[in-house]
Every structure is written in C-alpha cells, then in structure tokens.
Amino acid sequence: MSAARNRALTPTELDRFGEELDALRARTVATVGERDARYIRRIIAAVRYTEVAARTLLFASALLGGLLAAGQAWAWLFWPTWILGALLLGGAKILENMELGHNVIHGQYDWMGDPQINGRTYEWDIVATSENWRHTHNFRHHTYTNIRGLDDDIGYGLLRIFPEQKWKPFYLVQPLVAIVFALYFQWGVAIQDLKLGRWWHGKMTGAQLRRKARPVLRKMSRQLIKDYLVFPALAGPFFLPVLLGNLVANGMRNVWTYVIIFCGHFTADAETFPKECIKNESRGHWYLRQLRGSSNIGGGRWMNVMSGNLSHQIEHHFYPDIPANRYAEMAVEVREVCARYGQHYNTGSLPRQFGQVAWRILRHAFPSRARIKVPLVLPEPEPAPEAA
C-alpha cells in the first residue's frame, strides 16, 4: 500500500517539492509551440479520416448484407467488413473523446488561437455537454481531487470504492451496477452535473431540474439522431448493420473510457482525503494530494495516444493545461522528484491497475474499515539545543 511507501514531508520539504514541480512546468511551457500544434493537427486528421473509413466500411457491409440475403456467394465479406468498420469507428470515437476532446476542453491548445480547438467552445462527440464537463471535471474534480464530499468522481454517486465512504445496503449490488455503468458511461457523465440526488431528496425543485436538463437533453437528442437515425437512414433498406455498428462503436468508447478513468484514481494505492486538508493548502501540498490520489498506466506510445495520455494521470493532474503529448517526457523528471522526496509514484500495467479497481469494487460492496494513512505533512523538527 502507498502508506508504507510514502514519507511525510515537513513544510520546508513540501515547499521545495512544489518549487521543483513548478520549475518543470515553467521549462515545459517555454518550449510549447509548433511541435505541439503539428501533433494535435495530426490527431484531428486521424479522427476525421478514420471515421470516414469506418463509415464507408459500414455502408459497404450494409450493401453486402443485401447480397448475403439474396444468396450471393461472395457476400461472405459482410462480416469482416462490418467488424472492421465497427472497430475503426470505435477507435475514432475513442481518439476524439480522449486525446482530442478531453485535452482541448482543458484549454491545452488555446494558445494556438484556432477556434476549432478552443477549450471554451469545443463540443465533443458524446451525449454529455462540454459545458457541464468543464464544471464537473475541469473545476470540481481537478480542484478537489479525491476529497470526500467535494469530488463527485469518487464513485460517481453509485459506487463505494474506498473504505472511507459510508457503507449502505445498496452497495451490495455495486458489482452489477459497475458493469452497467461501464456500458453506458457517457450517459452517466451526461447527467452527473444535474445532481439528480438533490432533486430526489427534495433539495431541488422540478423546475430547477428542468432548466439544468434542457441543454443536456438537446445534446442527447442530437447524438441519438446522428448515430441511430441519420447515418443508418443513409443506408436505406440496409440500415440495420450501420445502426448496430454505431451501437458497438459507442459501447467500445464507453467501456474504454470507463476503464482508463477508473484506473486513474481508484487503484489500491490511491488515497482519498477529508475536506479539512484544503484549509490553507500550499502549492506543494496540492501537488502531493494530486500525486497520492492519482495512478498511471504503463503501455507505451499507443496506450498514451488512445488514453488521451491519461496513462500519465499524475502528470495530467499536475499540469492539466499543458499539451498532453508532453506528459511522457515530463514523467521522467516527475518520477525523479518523487523519489528524492520519498513519495510513491503509482504506476503499473493496465491489467494490474484495473484488476485493483475491480477488487476495490468487489471488496467495498461489503462493510469495511478505513485504513491508517501516512500524514501528508509533519511539523518542522525542533532546533537542537545550544551547547552550554
């Protein structure tokens, strides 16, 4: 457990810890430029051309499906064409969601002055509005990372993942709830900021809920019409393969996003914190909280790209507005800084990290007690007495 691997820091050490990480940020920001612009433009092109190729294959599979129904011998190509189209479309949706949308909405490319990738106006290809995401994710989650009662991402109001969360009988079914949540993850993200629990307990009126829900319902309607009406309709009487291809692609994106996000903060070594910890929180203290509440995933370049570089969740929480393609190189120095100050740098393979998440979901469905943790900060040592 991380508690056994972390050393509590004195206020002076904590200040130095923060200064070193701030210095890394300053050096990186000074070099951001054309290299990063080329990278994000390649990502935009990859999303666009992969989606075009995927939808072309799905339309082709729809036509082949008609031939298959007519008994044409070479219509066996229907299945490989449809599978490839669905997989490519899922890949395009993952790339747009993770490496493009998530990072653009953080404002990582606002310095380019390109309205196409402006963090305040970008709208991504999921049922959730980017405006709600900027509040629930960019503000609340990144400001109050893993603080109980302030970070709504801790279990998303559905799951008990840490022993510090109060147990309720409902959590006994959370292994099943977790599977359903993974399959419909974009819908959970869409309604997260509506605070349905407040309405359910009478703390929000129906009129207030309707006002908050209007933009969300409009976005949901647009996405449903695009994926399950417009594109299938273009295939005419062979609409079904296209509709099912879109359904599979959205499901792929939901499950993959769920896995990556849950690995980022809910592994065995990730910690949660009480509200009191942010009182007079220093810069170094903030960095330390982000470190102890976050987890990385190993896997190399493809893992980095397809996770939106959330494989470097620690670096992302340290520097959310720096272009994410820089995180891999920054991670080398971040790891060195953590080692110098006796702090555990939480990383592991995807199977290892998600296995820990799955175990948490299963274990904390039942009553459990909070663990003892190493404090974040120690008092300064008393000066040695002067010799007589």
Rank of each mutant, 00 (worst) to 15 (best):
L21N: 02
V29A: 15
L21P: 01
A30T: 11
L14Y: 00
V29R: 12
L21H: 02
A8Y: 07
V32W: 02
E13G: 06
T31Y: 05
E34I: 11
T12E: 12
A26Y: 14
E20F: 00
R7K: 13
G18E: 07
L9S: 05
L9K: 01
D22I: 06
A8H: 08
A8D: 08
G18K: 10
T28K: 07
G33V: 05
V29Y: 00
R25C: 13
E20S: 03
V29I: 15
L24D: 03
R25N: 11
L21C: 06
F17C: 01
T10L: 04
E20I: 00
R25H: 15
D15I: 11
V32R: 02
V29E: 13
D36V: 10
L14E: 07
T31H: 07
F17Y: 10
T28A: 06
D15M: 07
L24F: 07
A23M: 12
A37K: 14
E34V: 11
R35T: 14
E20Y: 01
V29G: 08
R35Y: 10
E20C: 00
E13I: 06
V32D: 05
R35W: 06
D15N: 07
R25E: 15
E19H: 04
A23W: 13
E19W: 00
A30N: 12
E13V: 06
R35C: 03
E13R: 08
R35F: 08
T12A: 14
R7S: 04
F17H: 00
R25K: 15
G33S: 05
T28H: 04
D36G: 09
A30G: 09
D15G: 07
L24V: 09
A30Q: 14
R7P: 04
R25T: 08
L14C: 12
T28I: 05
T28F: 04
G18L: 01
A26W: 15
R7H: 09
T28D: 09
